[in-house]
Design a protein around this nucleic acid. Structure first.
Lengths: 201, 201, 201, 201
DNA sequence: GTTTAAACGAGACGGTACGTCAAGTCTTTAT
DNA sequence: ATAAAGACTTGACGTACCGTCTCGTTTAAAC
């Protein structure tokens, strides 16, 4: 949400508070349209407002533009960060990759894609997007660092590159699906194992 | 290009032939707008027509819609497939990854991203996009298969998954750039080596 | 004012009494906006509320809608009905025409104009408007009738038509100003004299 | 109409010419909405476009904003300037007043009223409005001047004031109708005669 | 050399969505 | 109970593109 939740002492704002119902209805409408429409282009602010039974102004009061709304919708798709209680770094990695490509991986990929061009230009938008992505990347880095410490991973591992090697294939599979020739079945496990094992003979 | 170059006897069409100059001017205009505008959303058919000094109908005579035009523009960004004369499969892989992320990798990523939602719906568009992507993927598979045969790569290598592990990180780096924490410097070599070496200790 | 100041026993209302300051501030804000903005369209309820330092609801508690508020503002512009102590009906007419086109004739014309379309539809609004206009028209009729009685005006004078011939030009001058080619200087006197004298040779 | 009908040699504009059908449909729609809606506020660009079966852009291509469109609609309401073949200036005046308050006098008054606030601010709009009004005023002045020359009117007649005294009451009657107490029946004749005759005994 | 058919630049067409603004209503907290 | 603040739905505003459709003008092959 973009609402100005002031950090500090939370002084109660005057006037009628924003309807939490509306918040929910709007995001629900976005997800519903995304699911039925197949195309992020089909998710127009007007149709979201109509589907949510809400005025356009109610949307623009909360988000500065369409892209910001989509970013928040994306956050809703992502599952919560999984706990790390795994017995090994390998298992933790598999769990995290699995969580990242939750039930809505396809929609997530599509919307993210649509957002990308705007992210380049609007720094504020970019910041919002990073706020969704970065915690997951950081979690992945933690796992990798711990794996290095415990000796499970090689000592000279390039952490950032490895994060890219775990999230890049996952995203691409989400975007192109079957065209890649890779089945979704057991993908996280296979990916992590291939990465660990290496390709050389 | 989508032009109806009939396979058969190539009967010369009557009337004025299409201007090759226009073809070029249009694609040039797309690339120029992409470069200056930073955003695929800023590339409108109207602005392309204006920049190319061409009527809108001249564009729609060649491409069925905006997306098809963007796909052709994407093809222009990609360099030609590199020769495979490398002394090792490793070097060939590096060369191919390098070629794929040509001078315009950023723009390529952005445009591809914008196209994705439409690719899901329009099979014809999807076909056009595959025509650009598939040869490169196939080339990569060839290299991998040869590496397996020569014993450079392990015998049980999952070819499709490995293609994804080479192209996914590359695309993600193109899309998110510095936010990934990975420098563009020597990226292809580092990626291939990390993949070969594996992450386990 | 439309406020429900019950005629009868003036029972002291419970709760917080209405602020008389607010009444005044609101009408002042309307007049101020009218003066600075040049346009009745620029006088929005929102800007009135902001300028008056008042909530919108405070306005709507007093007037049923924007038009009603404007009508009340119009009343404020009009000067009070002048006394009729003139030595002749001619002088009384001049005094009345002068009073009608007070210092704010221009604003008055504009606002009246904006109100007109709504007056047709809303009978209540129309009644309110008549309550402002009718006393002045009636006063004019009185003068005319007295002039007929005293022999100052011709016996067959059409009272209603003459009222129209005195107020119509005045209103039009207020609306179109210099475009009419008639100077504001001494207008009431000239109008009344031209009306008395007649145009035929 | 706002179209750039260049005065001189009428160089043919490139591109598809504007549809005369659309011109007509749009103005017809405005008049129809005005007639049925009773209120100029009910004439929105969107409803005009819908009623005319036309895109909004087609309207905005011809008129810069809503007000300019209404002004052109006003012109359509006014009948053509009548010929002046009358045997006397009095008859010519009656004919002209009659023509000015054509079949749509009520709508004309309402729309003009709605336009007034904007006329003050936008000089271009004002120019367009004058282009509709001025020819009629000038025609009236011609009649008055001729009447003075022929001795039908008094030599010291104030032409501009007299124009105001003929058009002002007419406009006011159009705006307020029955509330003025003056019947529409034979109004032009009665007005002109009252003006000629004068009010003094 | 005509004819002729298609391509050309230009720009109007009916639409859809954008992001803004105001009207009039409703809901909160403070007085 | 009223006040100020501000959220709410509704709907018009004017703009920008989309993809299609005339216009009148080239251009090159076919006659």
């Amino acid at each position: 949400m973009t609402s100005t939740t002031s950090a500090g002492q939370e002084r109660k704002a005057p006037g009628r508070p924003r309807s939490a119902q509306a918040d929910e209805a709007i995001l629900d409408a976005v997800l519903a349209l995304m699911a039925e429409g197949q195309s992020a282009a089909a998710v127009s602010i007007e149709s979201v407002a109509a589907k949510a039974g809400v005025g356009k102004a109610t949307i623009y009061r909360r988000w500065p533009n369409k892209e910001a709304l989509l970013i928040d919708a994306v956050r809703c798709m992502k599952g919560p960060l999984p706990a790390l209680g795994g017995v090994s770094a390998r298992e933790d990695l598999i769990a995290l990759v699995t969580a990242n490509r939750s039930n809505r991986a396809r929609e997530y990929g599509i919307v993210t894609a649509c957002l990308l061009p705007e992210l380049q230009r609007d720094p504020e938008l970019n910041r919002m997007h990073q706020a969704v992505m970065e915690p997951r990347r950081e979690r992945m880095r933690e796992i990798l660092r711990r794996g290095v410490e415990t000796g499970e991973f090689r000592a000279d591992l390039d952490i950032h590159l490895t994060v890219l090697m775990l999230s890049g294939p996952s995203m691409m599979l989400g975007m192109f699906g079957d065209a890649t020739g890779v089945p979704e079945q057991d993908f996280p496990e296979k990916l992590v194992d291939a990465l660990l094992r290496g390709a050389s003979a």
